[in-house]
Amino acid sequence: MRLIELHAQSLELAAEVVDAVRPEQLDLPTPCAGWTLRRLLEHVVGQHQGFAAAARGAGPDLALFADAPVGEDPAGAFRRTGAELTAAFHEAAAAGRGLWLPEIQGAEPFPLPRAVGFHLLDTLVHGWDVAAALGDAAGLVAAVDGDDELAAALLAVTEAVPAAPENRVPGKAFRPPLDPGADGGRFDRALALLGRDPAWKA
């Protein structure tokens, strides 16, 4: 499935950002309000593990998506669990299996392409969160905007995220949409649609 390949590409771009994180930077603030860089990375690694478990056939168990410790080697944890997730997505594709994603809804499994798209969005947006926390997100933004297929996939998933006021309240995954402006590329537009300020600085 081509979307799994694009997802793996997004994981590598985000991993290159996480590779630069030093232990003394783990207490930095991030665009995720109230989250330090360590808290954000623990969330991301926990999501890798949860999506991988779902792709291997686990039922709607929220505990599978719990944050996971990253210790002093967040890059290693990110890459290891990211590789496991890619393998699990391929297994799900071969089996024709959908994914239970109880954080989104618990009524029925999601078709694999939708689930992969959800995680592609999370990967790139949280990769941007990490890069912004480190003070330089330009490289990641340029890499995504420079790849028409990846940028289009990101924007397509983003535009499908419900934007009704009740879906963008505190405690939900995203904030109310912002005006993306006329000067930014597709990554900036995706960020703004999800309520993130592309110009965010610590």
Rank of each mutant, 00 (worst) to 15 (best):
V18I: 05
L150K: 08
W100H: 10
E166D: 08
R22F: 06
A115W: 08
H48C: 00
G135C: 12
A94R: 15
A132K: 14
A33K: 06
A151K: 01
L194P: 00
A58M: 01
R168A: 13
L121D: 06
A20H: 02
Q25S: 08
A15D: 13
E16L: 11
A133Q: 00
A133D: 00
E91R: 10
G106Q: 08
E42W: 00
G46V: 10
A14T: 12
T36S: 15
R39G: 12
A33P: 01
A202S: 11
G34D: 02
P170V: 13
V45S: 01
E24Y: 04
P162Y: 03
A15I: 06
V144R: 04
A83N: 15
D67K: 08
A92F: 13
E84D: 09
A192H: 03
A75S: 05
L178E: 01
L121P: 06
A83F: 12
V144L: 05
F78K: 13
D129N: 04
A87V: 07
D122C: 02
F78R: 10
L11F: 05
P23N: 06
P23Y: 04
A83R: 12
Q49T: 15
T158W: 13
L6T: 07
Q49K: 12
L85T: 01
P111W: 11
H126L: 09
L150G: 04
F174T: 03
V141A: 10
G106V: 04
E166K: 06
A156W: 06
H48Q: 00
A33I: 02
P74L: 02
A107F: 10
L6K: 12
A8R: 04
P180W: 06
D197W: 05
A115L: 14
G76R: 02
A58V: 04
V21Y: 00
W128T: 02
R168F: 09
A190W: 03
A15C: 09
K201G: 15
L155N: 03
A156Y: 06
P165R: 14
W128E: 02
M1I: 06
V45E: 00
L154T: 07
K172H: 14
A137Y: 00
F110I: 10
A15N: 15
D73L: 06
A52L: 02
A88P: 09
P111G: 08
G82V: 01
A87L: 10
F89E: 04
R168W: 08
E159A: 12
A77L: 01
D179G: 07
V157T: 13
E5M: 02
L178A: 04
R79G: 07
L85M: 02
D61Y: 05
L193C: 07
E84Q: 08
G34Q: 05
L40F: 02
D197A: 05
T30L: 10
E84V: 00
